[in-house]
Design a protein around this nucleic acid. Structure first.
Lengths: 230, 230
DNA sequence: CGATCTATTGACTAATTTCAACAAACGTGG
DNA sequence: CCACGTTTGTTGAAATTAGTCAATAGATCG
């Protein structure tokens, strides 16, 4: 890790919700406390049991955060992208990760160490409030994830995921919308708590019903998003 | 709701982690902003879609927080007891609950409205930091809940739950420890994501194997906690 | 272009749910 | 303090859903 020197127009903290309300001078002050690191696609950023050094903020790329059991079965908790953070608990105590983070693309991250973050919060109390907001939103997301995993069947979960991608990628279109999966089908399956085989079978069925159209590994055309939801 | 007048030795906030670092005067100041309410066992405190009024802190009793799908199937997210809070997102925006809260015993709660809480945080920034800690811990718990629900089989989940209760109720005993379930078997099943029937069958099996002994509806004797974990 | 990673498909297996009938425990009022 | 009604839990049989294993196919990238 070296002091954060990601290109200036994309300083770690400029776009991060917990910091982006600050003035330029305040950001410069905080930037001195940041360290940056890069990871190649496929590399492990941390493992369960690793001691957390501080708050990690993803600056570029995608990070897969997941739980893995003894048999090697994986449940993805979430995919972190630009401005997402992980390891908030390390701001309060010695913390050992309980999940694994893997770079699923090349990744750049920033690290803020506990003591530095405590100083920063002391200087700018508003940051604690912002971080609380971010973590509260994430808690809500995680509770909704539980709902998906336990109260919806496989087809409902797949549709829910597709609809989420559609909302992000083509908010205003209703028919024949082309979406690009932001992760592999294997990882999508891991996120919604099923196997790749089950996902593949279900997508094939939906295609045979004329509801979607599969193009290559990562592209799906949704024929009619309202009809899909039913 | 009326201004908080729960008996003085158990003022809502005296024991609440987010407030209990404050001085008596500071607590008195905050106490003026609290409202209290009581709910009978079985009553619904809020439903999905209800508009949140502010932060709810449970003062006494047990509250079941759960998601319920269209078919009426329920997934319990967590059981709230003394000092637990719910609705942090309402501190930041108009918030409509996405889960249901039911009093599973008689319950007393405190409510802090958004504007009041914002004033309080302004006056005592340390409270935002405390609340961040509480919510970060809860996020960790919720992620571990996902792990239980998706990566462990039914027997492992049941044992995990029993071991948790044992840790709370008889931290230093290893054999023949009597635990009292803090919730009905139906609710326990709902928490670990299985049906009551599946729970019942598995407990019966474990009893037939001599690993546990069932007594009445809420008591279980764990013969050997170390052997149980295997 | 070839190696490797990713996805598909089939046959089989296993785990849990559902429905239904019954039993036990609890707590409440007479 | 007991009887009764209600709530909670138990058990069986059948149905269902998704997972596993394995072989194959297709895509992607250097």
């Amino acid at each position: 890790m070296v002091a954060c020197n990601h290109q200036t127009d994309r300083l770690c903290l400029v776009h991060v919700p917990i910091f982006n309300h600050l003035t330029k001078e305040e950001m410069n002050y905080i930037n001195k406390h940041l360290q940056s690191a890069s990871y190649e696609k496929g590399s492990i950023i941390f493992m369960p049991e690793d001691q957390a050094q501080g708050l990690i903020v993803v600056n570029d790329g995608k990070v897969k955060l997941s739980k893995i059991n003894q048999d090697g079965k994986e449940q993805i908790l979430r995919i972190l992208t630009h401005t997402d953070s992980v390891g908030e608990l390390s701001l309060f105590k010695e913390y050992y990760y309980t999940s694994q983070a893997e770079a699923i693309t090349d990744v750049k991250v920033c690290l803020i160490r506990r003591n530095d973050m405590q100083d920063i919060i002391q200087a700018y109390p508003e940051i604690a409030r912002k971080l609380l907001e971010v973590v509260s939103e994430r808690l809500e997301d995680t509770e909704n994830h539980i709902e998906q995993l336990t109260l919806h069947n496989v087809e409902q979960r797949i549709i829910h995921a597709l609809v989420q991608f559609a909302k992000e990628q083509a908010p205003n279109k209703e028919t024949n919308l082309l979406i690009t999966l932001p992760l592999s089908k294997g990882n999508l399956a891991g996120l919604i708590g099923i196997t790749l085989e089950t996902l593949s079978r279900n997508l094939a069925l939906m295609e045979s019903q004329g509801r979607i159209q599969l193009e290559g590994q990562r592209k799906i055309i949704i024929k009619d998003i309202n009809q899909l939801k039913i």
